[in-house]
């Protein structure tokens, strides 16, 4: 009944030509396509599963061993740990965030609150888009020439942090701008209607509301910094024995140290064990950061829902 109506309709649509008669064929085609699409999606998901399981399978036992986490790295003999590498990773992330957050958030405030859409905003967006497509190895050798050689910082955490600041600038700007734009316009109107100027409004009303969004973006950026390797191998360093204290000291973030293990690790008898443990630890850190970012945005959403109810 329904079928005949649809057929009549489609016959009318096709200008009187007879409706297609191979309905069973198209239905079969539809089921096959559904199966194919489902399998492709599941294949992608299982690739992720294989990666996580395989990395943890090889490295989890090592990665959770306190003697490995807090141990001193070894350059020539077995039994080394990765404590200075863990410290380097987080130190580098902290340093980068401290530099890039003010720049990125400031730029986002300009774009979202002050600038009129026009030539300037187009130029800035083009700059940010271009930065986000530059391969990380190009950032690496750029940072090496500019910060390590010309500025004379040598291989150091600060050289890496400055390089990663530029690398992450588009992401920090975008997430901050989204967080700012998510604040309803009525807030701005209310504040400015009470006589506050634009900057006062941003400082006292808009920014506080955008903090959770900016925080989520910052946590995801920390994850990216800790996972980055090509941009830091030639700026920060790949092996240290002691914890770096000064920002001007060379470091060896975990990701760069795994690369070192692959290229020169054969000097260490248990390099496979060390690198696998380090990879597993790195993966756990990145997964934890991902979870943390999700938690922050969930808490925030729950909070706004309550405040909506009171509004």
């Amino acid at each position: 009944m329904n079928g005949t109506r649809v057929e009549a309709l489609s016959a009318g649509y096709a200008g009187g030509r007879p409706a297609p008669r191979h309905e069973t064929k198209s239905k079969m085609q539809d089921s096959v396509a559904t199966i194919v699409v489902w399998s492709l999606a599941m294949l992608g998901l299982s690739a992720l599963g294989v990666i996580i399981v395989a990395i943890l399978w090889r490295g989890l036992a090592t990665a959770l061993n306190p003697a490995f986490i807090f141990g001193e790295p070894q350059a020539m003999k077995a039994g080394g740990g990765i404590w200075p590498m863990i410290v380097s990773s987080f130190y580098l992330a902290a340093l980068t965030i401290v530099i890039s957050l003010p720049i990125g958030v400031g730029a986002a405030i300009y774009m979202a609150e002050f600038a009129k859409e026009g030539k300037i905003t187009k130029l800035v967006r083009f700059g940010a888009d271009s930065l986000s497509t530059v391969p990380s190895i190009v950032y690496g050798i750029f940072g090496m020439m500019l910060f390590v050689v010309y500025f004379g910082f040598g291989y150091s955490l600060i050289a890496g942090a400055l390089t990663l600041t530029i690398l992450n600038l588009p992401t920090v700007m975008r997430t901050s701008e989204e967080a700012l734009k998510a604040v309803p316009d009525s807030y701005r109107e209310a504040s400015m209607g009470l006589g506050a100027n634009r900057w006062y409004t941003v400082k006292k009303v808009i920014l506080p509301c955008a903090v959770p969004g900016i925080t989520t973006g910052a946590i995801l950026t920390i994850g990216r910094i800790i996972g980055e390797s090509a941009a830091i191998i030639y700026t920060v360093g790949i092996f240290v024995k002691k914890i770096p204290l000064s920002p001007l000291a060379p470091g060896a973030p975990m990701s760069a140290n795994i690369w070192h293990m692959y290229t020169e690790g054969a000097l260490v008898p248990d390099w496979l064990r060390v690198a696998s443990g380090e990879a597993a630890f790195l993966l756990l850190v990145v997964l934890a950061l991902n979870l943390l970012a999700r938690l922050v945005s969930w808490l925030y959403r729950r909070k706004t829902r309550t405040s909506d109810r009171f509004a």
Partner: peptide, 29 residues
């Protein structure tokens, strides 16, 4: 008003960092 003007200029400079960054990379490479 003048403070707002200064703030706006500072934020503008920060926004231009993205442009400066890509220009620096292209020039140096």
């Amino acid at each position: 008003i003048s403070r707002e003007w200064i703030v706006k200029k500072i934020l503008f400079v920060l926004a231009m960092m993205a442009v400066l960054g890509i220009v620096l990379i292209i020039v140096l490479v």
